[in-house]
Every structure is written in C-alpha cells, then in structure tokens.
Design a protein around this nucleic acid. Structure first.
Lengths: 210, 210
DNA sequence: GTGGTATAACTAACTGGTTAGTTCATTATC
DNA sequence: GATAATGAACTAACCAGTTAGTTATACCAC
C-alpha cells in the first residue's frame, strides 16, 4: 500500500497524517496514543489512516523511521570535510544538538523506545543508531592514534552525550512546572544548540583528551 | 530496599501489589500497564488493589515514590563521612550505579516519566531529584573552592551521569536483540556498578578536574 | 462531447474486544 | 457478630480496526 519512504512522493494527506502521528506519539507514547486523536489532528477520517498507511504499529514504525531515520547520514555529511579529531568530536556533538532542537519529537520518542527495550523499534533505525556510534568510534580511535585522546568506551561516550541531551530536552516541561526550583536550573536555555551543547562539548573533550 | 518491619506498616498484600505494579509499570509504562495484569502477578483480585490503594494513578504514584523515592537520602548517607570532593563525586556516581542495579525498575520508569514531561510525577519525587542535584552542586562547589574542579553546570553533570547510566541499563535488551552488533558493544557488562560505573566515574572526573 | 465505467481518495457509522473501576456476597479474624 | 479483607461477576466507557458507501477525477468508446 505505501511506498518506501525513499521517494518523496508522499501526498499532502500522508504528510499531514505522519506529522500529526509524530506529535501524538511523542506526547503519549505508543500505547497512550489514540488513533482517533491522530486523525483529528491531521484533519482526516480515521479510516483514511488505515487506507494510506496501515494499522497503529505500521504508523508508528513509519513515524519513528521518519523522525530518527537519517541522523547518521546528516552527521556523516558534516564530519566528512574535517581533519582534526577534536573538531570532529565537537561537530558530532553539535550536529546532534541541532537535530534534537529541530525535531522536538525525537527526544521523547527515543527515550520511550529505549525504556521499552526497543519494543517497536524498526531494525533499520537500530542499524542507523549503530552507524552513529560507529562513526564516533572512528573519531575516538583516530584521536587515540594521533596521541591526543585517551582510550575510552565509545558507546559510553555516546550515551553520555545522547543521554544528557535527550534528558535535557525532555525535562524542560518538568523544570518549567515547579516554581520552587532555583534560577540556576530554571533559567537554563530550552534550546540545546548554543550554550548547552557548547558546555557538553567542552566536558566531553576534557574527558577524552589526554 | 526492603524496609525493616518496624518502619513498614505495609501488609504483605500491599507489598506484593506494589512489587507487581512496579514490574508491570516498568515494563509497559502507565498507559500500557493493565490493572488486571498487576492483580494477576500479585496473586490478588483486582478489587483488592482498589480496596488497599486506589485507582491506577494512585497506584502508579505509590510505585514511583517507592522506586525512586529515597535515593537522595541514600546518597546523602554515603557521602556524609567523606572529605575529599573528588572522592565524594566518585561515591555519588557509584551509589547511583548501585541503586540502578539493585532496582531494575528505576531506569525505565524514570525514563518514561521524563519523556512524558513528568505527567504522573508526584511532587515529592521531583523534590527528591532536585535534592540530589543540589548535593552534586555542593560537591562541585566545594571542589571549585578548593581549587581542584573547574566551574561547571551541575545539572548538566547530573544528567550526563544519569542519562548514561539509565540509557545503558535500559538499552541492554536492545543490545541483546541484534546479532549483527559487534562484540565491543554486545559484550558490555549488564551490571553498571563495576567496570561501567568506574569508567563513567573516570570520565566525569577528568571532565570536571582542573 | 456524451454516456458509461473504472479507480483513487475519502467519510460516517458501526463492531467487537478490551479494560478501568464497581458492587455485593463471602470469608477470615478478633 | 463486627470489621477488615477478598473474590466473582458485572458494567460502562473506550478504542483499534472495518464496512459500506460517497465523491471526484480520469479514461475510453462511439
């Protein structure tokens, strides 16, 4: 019924369904999301979703691929031209930060996906994430070979960066809710790219640099 | 984690309900969890849950307080006797790791709670988490004053440690699922306390130490 | 260019299984 | 026998997925 998402041939209706689905799933998770609500936000009849895409699972898989599907490619592109491993690492962090800022659904969707043990995670997406970690491993290895980085566990570095950013982003509404929180926490910027990413960048570089 | 029988006035039935609820909620999240399933695992009739505790929300709040409720106290206790900020920071990380290992429900529950913007987070628990970050701030400040740490954003350090550990723990089933993952990632220990916590400890210390 | 037909896109209304929460009778305990 | 605790059965609401039909457009034969 649906075409592989490679060709950008999606109709306006399909795009609207996917956009609505992304926002509902990111707010409520898979089981919390209501197909009726998605239909309502997309401004289509529920049956239209089943006509164009398929059942709830299929819809979710489509959304998740769309939302965290091409991060690896983006990072690879940004890193390509750079020589210095240190700068590569900085760009790695920055690109991630930008990606999370630009796609607000990524963070909560990814968190819940991990929390559920990848219950609904399409293998393609798992491979994409592995690809990202692998790039990081390349960067770190190169740094070690050039004598500027210490030996580390790339996967750990990855989840420290990722974990921090994703938690930072998703915790924003919680931080906003409680007035008794001190300014130091409450006043932190909502955007990651910028001050926060810069801070994380520096911390990670200090951690891995000889 | 089990309370001494003096402090815990909870009946055996209530304890069994809370234990069952914790495991179901941590597997399926709030909306994915079924009250019938909780009753079944606890070996009680569903009405017993409503008699002793209340509705699903009440039950969830009870579980969440139980599961991440007294971490602050535990950390405070462990840190009390220590002078050296560096060692305090190490203990901070280690205690957290231990806590996550000992209570396997903590990580997924916390992740989903953050992902949902604290939708069901009891304020008591939010205050507890803030208390933890505040302790970390104290440690870091002390280190800065003694001239051994650089200035950092405590909240960021906290979510780097936390994010990494929680992600590490919950990603275990995903890492186990895919056989195409290289040994370097697949062979990582499931327990955090030990090698992993040690590695995180070192990274964080390198990051904040002058 | 008119009538006929096929097809894609969509909808209102329905179905049947599921599930949170209730009721009330029954059992155990003191 | 009064109170606390539990069980079996029920109900009302909810919700994923279906059905049967409508509209719009394109295509084709004559």
């Amino acid at each position: 019924m649906d075409l592989p998402s490679s060709a950008g041939k999606k109709s306006v209706t399909v795009k609207r369904i996917l956009k609505a689905a992304a926002s509902v799933f990111s707010e409520s998770g898979f089981s919390g999301a209501r197909v009726d609500e998605i239909a309502k936000r997309a401004g289509v009849n529920k049956a239209t979703i089943y006509y164009h895409i398929g059942d709830k699972e299929k819809l979710y898989a489509e959304v998740i691929s769309n939302v965290i599907g091409n991060t690896a490619e983006m990072i690879a592109g940004k890193i390509k031209g750079i020589r210095d491993p240190e700068e590569k690492l900085r760009v790695y962090v920055r690109t991630f930060a930008r990606n999370i800022d630009d796609n607000p659904q990524v963070a909560p969707v990814m968190m819940r996906e991990v929390a559920s043990g990848g219950e609904h995670l399409p293998e393609v997406v798992a491979r994409d994430i592995f690809h990202i970690v692998n790039m990081l491993r390349g960067i770190l290895k190169e740094g070690v070979e050039k004598g500027i980085f210490i030996e580390t566990v790339p996967f750990l570095i990855h989840i420290m960066v990722m974990g921090a950013m994703v938690t930072y982003k998703t915790s924003a509404p919680i931080r906003a809710k409680y007035n008794w929180l001190p300014a130091g926490i409450k006043k932190l910027d909502d955007k990651i790219s910028g001050t926060i990413a810069g801070e994380i960048e520096n911390l990670i570089l200090r951690a891995v640099t000889k």
